[in-house]
Amino acid sequence: MRASGFVTDPDIRELVAFRTAGQDFCIDILSVREIRGWSRPALLPHAPTYVQGVINLRGAVVPILDLARRLGLEPIENTDRNVIIVAAIQNRIVGLLVEAVTDILTVPASDVQPTPDLASETTRTMLRGVVVQDSRLIRLLDVAQLLPQDAEAAA
């Protein structure tokens, strides 16, 4: 099953690659709405640590997730150079705070390999696979997994 549900050519995938906590990641371009500079979010009370707060995106209130923390990695330094990838995840709009967007990749679907056994359990559940580009290992995120699973949370 694909994250996007539709791609023009099922064999070609376009991915937005970015860097955070010293690692390379990418997500399907179809779930990306826009990429914008960092702006100070309003804090949310009683929120998980990876939720930075909320920002105003043209009138909509959008939560900002620190992706590094979400993946159980070292939190990134708060600087104005960080960027927010605004993504649509299951009918919700969420901002992913990362260090920098590095590339737009166009790869054959066959280039996406299964996640190797090296990642931690937290990371593994949120990965869909890996892509190797120019000897770099780029982790393909399963964006749906970034939101806590409702059923478990609510039960």
């Binding site: 939720v51 997730l65 299951q90 939101l147 806590p148 409702d150 609510a154």
Partner: peptide, 8 residues
């Protein structure tokens, strides 16, 4: 309790 981020 930590609230769910995405209660559907």
């Amino acid at each position: 309790p930590v609230p769910p981020l995405a209660a559907e």
